[in-house]
Amino acid sequence: MAEVANIDRTAFAEWLQRVGDNALILGHRVSEWCGHAPALEEDIALANTALDLIGQCQLWLGLAAEVEGKGRTADQLAFLRDAGAFHNLLLVERPNGDFGVTLMRQFLFDAFHIELLRALVKSTDSRVAEIAAKAEKEVAYHLERSADLVIRLGDGSAESRARMDKALKSLWAYTGEMFLDDAIDQAVAETGIAPLPSSLKAAWEATVNAVLAEATLENPGQAWQHKGGKQGIHSEHLGFLLAEMQFLQRAYPGASW
């Protein structure tokens, strides 16, 4: 079936923005590394990851705009919303930090992202399923790469282990938000468009535990968890990210690029 009839368009559009915003903001963060990575192979891999995420964001936000039905485009959603109207997870807006933080953030997100996409391939909305099928292939590779590097650096030198451990501890408090269900999640789940975030947690934990064990890193376990990104309550970092990203569209309104 092409389209799910009995869903509140506003809820569906906002859910699509959540998925698209995660890709956009993480893609942006990763692209900040361009030309500054610790090895040429990493420059290439990071640009590739950012490119995949920006491509996915175009599809998700394009569909969000279509579902919303207000005549906005994916670009208008990306470049003309203020921070409070962004619905990405707090995790993806965390600053890059050192390369260890960037990799750990990528791994923790990839392990969630792949589970989400695997479930979305079975979405009752064929447009969602199609985007997910394309993105799933890309994200499977992102996870393979980020997990491999987390393992190698965790079980690497004393310094690389210490850096990865520090990165894990500082990012852990931003992982809980991925699995919180709210009214929008309930609405899309009821129509079979998407799984409930909470339903993805067990598989994410299994992946994370296996990789951390091999990386000789200790799972931080129960800890305080931040939340709010999905609902538009962000960290201070997002405003600066958007100020940079949206500069041209804001400074030259209505211009075509």
Partner: peptide
């Protein structure tokens, strides 16, 4: 790379990323 984070549209951003990635590949 100085302008990847400020590219004016999603498509321009993607194209520029692809281009800069090619350059790293050429290297």
């Amino acid at each position: 790379g100085n302008w990847i984070t400020r590219a004016p549209t999603l498509e321009r951003k993607a194209i520029l990323l692809a281009k800069v990635q090619d350059e790293a590949g050429h290297g």
